[in-house]
Design a protein around this nucleic acid. Sequence first.
RNA 1: UGUCCCAUAGUAUAAAGGCAGUACGACAGAUUUUGAUUCUGUUUGUCGAGGUUCGAAUCCUCGUGGGACAACCA
Length: 550
Amino acid sequence: MSEEKSLNFLEEIVEEDLDSGKYTSILTRFPPEPNGYLHIGHSKSICLNFGLALKYGGATNLRFDDTNPVTEETEYVDSIKEDIQWLGFKWEKELYASDYFDQLYLFAVSLINKGFAYVDDSSAEEIATQKGTPNEPGIESPYRNRPIEENLQLFEQMKNEEFADGSRVLRAKVDMNAPNMHMRDPIMYRIKHAHHHRTGDAWCIYPMYDFAHGQSDSIENITHSICTLEFIPHRPLYDWFIEKLSIFTSHQYEFARLNLTYTVMSKRKLLQLVNEGYVSSWDDPRMPTISAFRRRGYTPSSIRTFCDKIGVAKRDNLIDVSLLEFCIREELNQTALRVMAVLDPIKLIIDNYPVDQHEDLQGDPAPSGETRLLPFSNELWIEREDFMEVPAKKWFRLAPGMMVRLKNAYIVKCESFLKDDDGNITKIHCTYIPESKSGHDTSGFHVKGTIHWVSADHAATAEVRLYDRLFKVENPSSEEGDFKEYINPNSLHIIKKAYIEPSLTKASINQPYQFIRKGYFCLDKDSIPENLVFNRTVTLKDAWTKKVNN
RNA sequence: UGUCCCAUAGUAUAAAGGCAGUACGACAGAUUUUGAUUCUGUUUGUCGAGGUUCGAAUCCUCGUGGGACAACCA
């Protein structure tokens, strides 16, 4: 029963290339620059590159695009590798563009020899001026027609640390009149006396992206080099270098990057949020980074499912974050242990339940069949929002004179309540119906509402962190002004002291929980035995709140 | 006043000249000891104008709209 799922345009290209015999197997690559943490947008690219290879029996290299030593660090390399593995993918080889610095240097010399590259002494400003604009052609550099010998000599001197940063560059000799700005004699090498995270101080000249990426693809025999739309104008250059160098012909294909509502997806902006303290770290659970989703309780498979559902195409898109939430809820609904925790407590006293008595009630069994006991007594904590002094229409939780089921316990009826001087409700008095015990209900009462609770004497406490969207608007990047103006000031709500059922004191970090009626939660890495911390991964769908708000 | 990419429900994504479908969302109902889950149903779409064709979301032309491109970033 193979449900024929339609192919995306990249799968079509791969199938064609395989069917036509152009390739007998495919090789893709995932090429992050180690200058930041991976985000959910990268996971689309990861799922695409690794997924394509998996589907068609090929392989994927992990290649760090580390040609700019001033922004790149080993810390990022490590986090990137961890994130890819966590997502569930295995790379064929771990490679670095810097592995090819020697080869790239020889490629450059060869282009100089063929008259396709020259050393330019112009300043950055002069080169920018020479470039022209999209509407006006560029002008040729006065150094453009230097003799080959002189270029060779100067380029070697560049390599030999004889010149200062910025004093000279190596440029490709293409066409200053090209309508495509990238073809107007692009820079191939620049001088940077900077320490490289892998090659140390071996080099003071570093290749630019355009003279590193395609050549690295070619060296590795990458068949399908998949990147995002903004590289489309680079493709003619990508092809030009490969052709002039007469090396293995890799091909570049472009897809539209993922954008998600209520967040930003550029490393530059995410770095700002971290550096300027809007979030606590790269893995602050409000961030769209993979490490943040991991910490927040998202699973690798939920992210992979999401990447599968969003599809792949070439048009700009803005995916509704509710799709991501659907994916994680769908999974957690299957795997989460149901437990009870009261986040905003109010005391409920059962007047007809003996003060010194308690009983251990049976909680809902876990999917594994494992059971747990719920201590019950005359004083409980319930959720403040589960009581209304004056019930709304269609309200079926607690209110004066109304009855509700306490989950896995008894039916109670609200008899009275107390308020403090400010009018805040402080205590709710109820009576319980002894014949209504869960599983043994002979009371004959039928109640519409069931609420969660914990026994006041037996409850443990924990810190609970509730997260909301990081931005107030769907697409912060498209708004006027600075994107940071649109940050949601209420994206984090910390509850210092929530009451949790005793079984949760044994919570473990990879076990998802559903706090019944409150959402899916996971233990945070900040937890210590004296202070457990839970993150809300995602809320439950909530038809009631929605109804009230409308 | 350039070059390139793109245009299908609210958001995404299919339909390879032959019945516009799927998912999420939204809405309504059923079930429910989670106002969750589950189940059922409803809603909404081919940017415009020409052309080719028996037949066009699909091919062509011209518009319109959106996006990308002028870092010694990737």
